[in-house]
Simulated scan of single mutants.
Amino acid sequence: MKYNKLGSSDIKVSEVCLGSMTWGVQNNQSDANQQIEQAMSRGVNFIDTAELYPVPPTGEKYGDTEQIIGNYVSANKKKRNDIVLATKIAGNGLPWIRKSADIDGDAIIKSVDASLKRLQTDYIDLYQLHWPNRTSPHFSKHRPNAVKFSDVDKDKQVSNMLTILQALNDCVKAGKIRHCGLSDDTTWGINQYIKLSEKYALPKMVSIQNEFSLLHAKDWPYLIENCIHEDIAYLPWSPLAGGALSGKYLNNMRPEGSRWTLTQRNGLFRDTPNSQLAIAEYKLIAQQFNLTPSQLALAWCKQIDGVTSTIIGATTLQQLDENIDAFNVELPEEALVKIDSAFQQFPAPF
């Protein structure tokens, strides 16, 4: 397993990050325990979760994934220092979380304390903002004019960012969190936080996790270039496009118990005719190089300049091993050429 520095922090993280959003719906406590043990036995030291999880999110299940991880941590106290544990505060828009309100300083303080309690730990290694208060071009809102940036009250947003950083600073000083990061944000968002951190001597954001895959590579090149030069770790989530790049949903297949059989908060927006064509092409390329479609997609994601750690998810130990195996794959030039040709045909299929 390869380890990379988490942005400007002093933390080294495995290039595989174990995602946890299925724990509590598709997976139970025993499944989660087995996944954590299996991942750690293979060198994974990075686990990502969120107060929002499990997914699909509901008020009844809110916080359950953190609780599942907390149960593992409580039963394995000696292993806590071997885990880089990341979680996230949910943004606005969910009525059962702070009545849909924006993230502010008070929300940070209360949510950190609540996550610490559920996770049954004294500290969080990486505390992230799940999505910004302003609407950002994520979750199928990446096409031109899907978001009106000119409608944003810049001064209000920057003032809010400062309040958030000040609260995060209080948590860092109290030893509750070690480092701070972003999720589902933009280049402008990253740079505003950097400016505020420098101006007011507040914690610097060390990472950002955004959706990134063969079907959704909008962060290349501009946001990722910014991450490299500003020493921000780039953490792709959904590198299999919600499982689609495994090929299991081709021809409208819906395997029993799979994610796409569950009601999705934003619908199956990744399921388009062009996505199906692209996935079929990547599956053919994978077969030519004796890889599974998932391994091809993950090995491609791993080798992108600027990627620090890729967040993977699995519902079975077999899937977990298959996905981790992908990070031992070095794609030959011939494979990269074929992938690039397919990518040019389907650069933005959803």
Rank of each mutant, 00 (worst) to 15 (best):
37 E>A: 04
59 G>C: 03
27 N>K: 05
59 G>P: 01
35 Q>H: 13
49 T>G: 14
47 I>G: 02
27 N>R: 11
44 V>P: 05
63 G>T: 12
29 Q>F: 03
51 E>G: 07
57 P>I: 15
58 T>A: 09
32 A>E: 04
40 M>V: 02
27 N>E: 01
64 D>L: 15
48 D>I: 14
56 P>A: 13
43 G>V: 03
41 S>L: 07
42 R>S: 07
31 D>A: 07
38 Q>I: 02
61 K>D: 09
53 Y>A: 06
55 V>D: 10
34 Q>T: 11
48 D>K: 15
31 D>K: 10
47 I>D: 00
28 N>S: 11
29 Q>T: 02
60 E>I: 14
61 K>V: 13
28 N>P: 07
36 I>G: 14
54 P>S: 03
55 V>H: 12
36 I>T: 14
48 D>P: 13
45 N>C: 12
47 I>H: 01
51 E>H: 04
39 A>Q: 00
61 K>H: 14
65 T>Y: 09
36 I>S: 14
59 G>V: 06
61 K>Y: 10
34 Q>L: 10
43 G>H: 02
51 E>P: 00
40 M>G: 00
42 R>W: 00
59 G>M: 00
31 D>G: 12
63 G>Y: 12
39 A>P: 00
36 I>N: 10
36 I>H: 14
54 P>M: 00
47 I>P: 00
51 E>I: 02
30 S>H: 06
37 E>G: 03
34 Q>S: 12
42 R>M: 10
45 N>A: 10
56 P>E: 10
43 G>A: 03
50 A>Q: 03
65 T>H: 11
50 A>C: 03
45 N>T: 06
32 A>G: 04
48 D>R: 15
56 P>Q: 13
34 Q>R: 13
29 Q>M: 04
35 Q>P: 02
44 V>M: 09
60 E>D: 11
58 T>N: 08
41 S>P: 01
64 D>S: 15
28 N>I: 11
35 Q>R: 09
52 L>C: 04
41 S>C: 08
55 V>M: 13
49 T>V: 14
42 R>D: 05
46 F>S: 11
47 I>Y: 00
35 Q>G: 06
46 F>Q: 08
33 N>W: 09
62 Y>M: 01
52 L>T: 05
35 Q>V: 09
